[in-house]
Design a protein around this nucleic acid. Sequence first.
DNA 1: TCTGGGGTCCTAGGACCC
DNA 2: TCTGGGGTCCTAGGACCC
Length: 424
Amino acid sequence: MKTNQPVFALADGNSFYASCQRVFRPDLRHTPIIVLSNNDGAIVARSADAKPHVKMGQPYFQVKDQLKRHGIVAFSSNYAFFGDMSERMMAVLESHVAKISCYSIDEAFLDLTGMPGDLELLGRKIRADVLKKTGITCGVGIAYTKTLAKLANYASKRWQSQTGGVVDLREPEKLERCLRAIDVGEVWGIGSKLKMHLEGMKILSAWDLAQADKPMIRQTFSVVVEKTARELAGIPCFDLDEPDAPKQEICCGRQFGMRLKEKEPIKEAVATYIMRASEKLRARRSICKRIRVSISTGMFNPEEAKYANGVMVELPYPTDDVRLLTQAASAAVDAVFRPGYAYSKAEVMLLNLCQRGEYTDDLFAASQPASSERTMQVLDAINKKWGRGTLRTGSVPTSPAWAMRRELMSPCYTTRFEDLWRIP
DNA sequence: TCTGGGGTCCTAGGACCC
DNA sequence: TCTGGGGTCCTAGGACCC
């Protein structure tokens, strides 16, 4: 075996949002719990004991009765809290290995390449340490490619009692047994559409896809599916991502807490989303050349008249200035708004991003004035010190009627002094 | 009344150029 | 009689992820 052969681990928190809530509510240790999306819309997380009773993605209003019957407790999303718990978990993971790459709020790939000793044992140590320091139980999968590490992680959960939550798939016999036992639809990168298509071709298990003819897979599907198949066969095609790889686009959009029929409140919401999106933009030291603003009515209720539209706006020069972006977005709302509809959502996207340093000014075109940069620095500094939203553009209201509903919100145990845990 | 938000990557197809 | 084709850029849309 080559010593430089890459080895990946994937660690992720079990039922992450639900587990976060339980850490600070030990009284609910034996009570099934679920966590809802923004606006208390749909179920986005379920504790293990809630899983048999409700489906992921189900609308909350449809299952309210069921919840009562099974004694399931629901929480609104609390991203300040979840984000902070995530940072804690990532910090523990990071302390055990040289390189990690956060893949989502609750999972990270770890680079175990060249690590000495028993890696499965290392996995168990990491798992125990995360539990001790954060209260979150995680699963760890270890393998030669990222796709196989994801699969190993899946196995660590599906056979948790046999595996103790850690699975190392580097041994060929064990890998084959595992691949044969897992449906192709469980593979990372194979969604419902591809699953159906693959099953039609008698590719039913992860093993079948690993064995499939790669050029045929590429021809029938795409290079993406081919890479997935190669990864299953043990050939690495995906590297560990760079931690701060530049983003292609930044987007911020939400359902309103109520239907909006007038243009003004929609402009307020759009200005609020621009505020948030431009913060993210500046945090990455990027600027953007165009934005897209879209608004839409509810799309599910057959009773409602439907309308959805968006416009692209080219900016006079690449910018990260919230004032210029807000102006452009406001004009965009004027262009897409049609009276007579009940709107439920708006979204802004910042597009054509580039890094500040990379952009070369056109000698004859206008560019962002230096004063703008200083103003934005002050804005960000104030909001960092005193909390998001302390200094805002004039179009952003403090507590608008259209703000999202979060009626079942837990305290922000780890990020607000007033919400600190009290032990009676 | 009520159905997430934030991303990525790839492909197809049109416009344009030579 | 006799319809170009390849490269490039852009956009829209699809599929996927958590």
